[in-house]
Amino acid sequence: MDELLQAEHVSMVFGGLKAVSNFNLHLNKGELVGLIGPNGAGKTTAFNMLTGVYRPTTGSITFAGKSIVGLPPYEVTQRGIARTFQNIRLFSELTVLENVKIAFHFHVKYGLIEAVLRVGRYFREEQEIEEEAMELLRIFHLEDKADEVAKNLPYGAQRRLEIARALAAKPKLLLLDEPAAGMNPQETHELMEMIRWIRREFALTILLIEHDMSLVMGICERIYVLEYGEILAEGTPKEIKANPEVIRAYLGGE
């Protein structure tokens, strides 16, 4: 399989605190991989390093064969990595449609002058963005909410909108940070089906952090387990379930 992302010997030190140490992870094109671990294990810090929010203290991160260490988040997004957040981060005062349209602007080709004067490619590209954004809203059953202010959506719909916005950036790799947080079992089951579907339809590689073990074990092909900032284990769901170190660290006993 073609390797898409590789993190090697990555560490992140804040003051004297090692949040992540000797972190190694690889993702092949088209994989659906989980990253699990107890609270405070360093999972979100790892995501922040992969997306340019933090610059790692040591180590290398390559994506599609090129280093992304030191790139700001918007450049990492332009390269093809998009993410959602543990705490939903929508533009709460903008409409549902505007939230999705914003992400498409990572890929516009018209220039500043064309935008200011509203000439040339501006109208054509803006019309295409509107159509593509509405299509994404249809996929996520949000088209009837297009003109609603994002903060007024129910929680589950806000989660769907955040994933739709991430997909509008046209990523090759999608990072999902606790997508099932706050969802009931029925919503979680629907989310599992949605993640499977978008991986297939958008030809994506997906890495997800999640505490809901039924979701992780149900959809991931491989799982990494993080403890105290270090990779404790890596393997298939079956291997992870049977790993005594994982049982001790994550489940707290036999």
Results as ranks from 00 to 15, higher is better:
9 H>S: 13
86 Q>N: 13
88 I>L: 11
242 A>M: 07
149 V>L: 11
214 S>M: 14
187 E>Q: 07
228 Y>P: 00
177 D>R: 06
126 E>S: 11
116 V>K: 14
118 R>S: 11
148 E>F: 10
9 H>Y: 07
46 A>W: 00
23 F>G: 00
95 T>G: 06
188 T>Y: 04
62 T>W: 01
58 T>S: 08
32 L>T: 05
212 D>N: 15
182 G>E: 01
203 A>E: 10
134 M>L: 09
25 L>G: 02
63 F>W: 04
116 V>Q: 09
169 A>I: 08
37 G>W: 00
231 I>S: 01
129 I>T: 13
2 D>Y: 03
11 S>H: 02
70 G>K: 08
195 I>R: 07
177 D>F: 01
99 N>H: 10
90 L>V: 03
218 G>F: 01
253 G>Q: 13
14 F>G: 03
5 L>S: 05
109 K>S: 14
49 M>I: 07
243 N>V: 00
145 K>Q: 15
34 G>R: 03
111 G>P: 12
192 M>C: 11
190 E>K: 05
9 H>G: 15
49 M>R: 02
208 L>I: 04
199 R>H: 15
133 A>W: 04
5 L>D: 02
174 L>Q: 12
49 M>N: 06
124 R>F: 10
67 S>T: 12
162 E>M: 10
1 M>F: 05
229 G>E: 00
226 L>Q: 02
67 S>N: 08
33 V>M: 05
83 R>Q: 11
161 L>R: 04
251 L>S: 13
167 L>S: 10
80 G>D: 02
80 G>V: 02
85 F>T: 09
188 T>Q: 06
252 G>Q: 04
99 N>I: 10
204 L>G: 12
56 P>Y: 01
14 F>Q: 07
191 L>F: 04
167 L>Y: 04
200 R>H: 15
86 Q>E: 08
108 V>L: 09
240 I>Q: 01
19 A>Y: 00
75 E>N: 13
220 C>N: 06
97 L>M: 09
177 D>L: 03
186 Q>K: 15
16 G>A: 08
39 N>S: 11
8 E>H: 06
182 G>N: 05
158 Q>A: 11
21 S>T: 00
219 I>K: 10
206 I>H: 06
125 E>T: 08
7 A>S: 10
238 K>R: 12
205 T>F: 03
8 E>A: 07
192 M>S: 08
103 A>Q: 05
247 I>L: 14
114 E>D: 14
118 R>H: 14
211 H>E: 09
114 E>A: 13
47 F>N: 03
103 A>C: 09
85 F>V: 09
234 E>Q: 12
202 F>H: 15
77 T>Q: 02
9 H>N: 15
1 M>N: 05
108 V>R: 08
72 P>A: 09
21 S>A: 01
116 V>I: 15
234 E>G: 03
68 I>R: 03
83 R>D: 03
182 G>M: 07
190 E>M: 06
85 F>M: 13
156 G>M: 08
198 I>C: 13
8 E>N: 11
184 N>G: 12
26 H>D: 09
226 L>T: 00
240 I>G: 02
111 G>E: 10
149 V>T: 14
150 A>N: 07
178 E>P: 06
117 L>C: 07
129 I>A: 13
56 P>E: 05
74 Y>Q: 12
1 M>I: 12
161 L>M: 07
231 I>H: 01
171 P>Q: 11
13 V>R: 04
112 L>K: 11
205 T>L: 09
138 R>F: 09
172 K>M: 14
